[in-house]
Simulated scan of single mutants.
Amino acid sequence: MLRSSCLPSLAAAPLALLRSSYATTATTVHPLVATLRGALKQSMLARTTERTSVIKSILADIQTAQHAAGNAPTPLKSLATAISRRVDAAQTFRSSTPPRADLAEQYEREATILREFVPQKSADALSKEQIEKLVKEVLVANELKKAVGKDTGRIIALVREQTGDRAEAKDIAAAVKSIELP
């Protein structure tokens, strides 16, 4: 039998410390996810079932990708993948024998709904010159004159870490492959 004197006293720990440990576990939410959640709430209030189901599906895709092992794609990448899947499905249903126009139109509507959430080029997007400057800085920091072979992917990844969502991966890759320091 344990005596109460053997157990640590919770009264000794200030309540504020206990509460603060729970408050620090909050995670940051990607702006796209916050936008989708707001749109979901509005859609549910407006009782638009198709829009609600499409937004729920993309939120589920994003959450599933975040829980996957390895490098999780960004929510923007998950959104782009969902749009392309729906466009491909619509094309498949249009070209099937017999054509299923009803299903093709449904997938096209879903793709249109998802396209509303694709962010337009923002003011903080990096220009081609800014990307090239970052690539040169990373090359110098890694003591390379040109990215060749395995170094190419590593340099692209390092630049992507610095740019985040402010630059397209294809633009970064093109800059890394084209730049050669003297």
Rank of each mutant, 00 (worst) to 15 (best):
A147W: 01
A34L: 07
L36T: 13
H30V: 01
L181A: 00
G38C: 03
A68M: 08
L36Q: 14
L45V: 05
S127D: 06
Q120P: 02
R51W: 03
I55A: 03
V54R: 02
A123M: 06
K77L: 04
K77C: 02
A26T: 14
E116C: 07
G70A: 02
P14E: 15
A23L: 10
L32K: 08
T163P: 03
L7H: 09
A169S: 10
R86H: 11
T92D: 11
Q130Y: 02
E110A: 06
I58P: 04
T49L: 11
Q63G: 09
A80P: 03
N71A: 14
K56L: 13
V140F: 05
E168K: 01
S78W: 00
T97G: 08
A125P: 00
E137K: 05
Q66A: 14
S4Q: 07
S43K: 04
T74M: 07
Y107D: 01
T81H: 07
A104D: 04
L181T: 00
K121F: 02
K41F: 08
K150G: 14
A123P: 03
R37D: 09
V29C: 10
K177D: 04
A90F: 00
I179T: 13
K136D: 05
A23Q: 09
P14N: 14
L126K: 12
A169L: 15
S178E: 03
V135Q: 11
E180L: 01
P31V: 09
S5W: 13
G149E: 00
S78T: 13
A157T: 08
T81D: 15
L134Y: 04
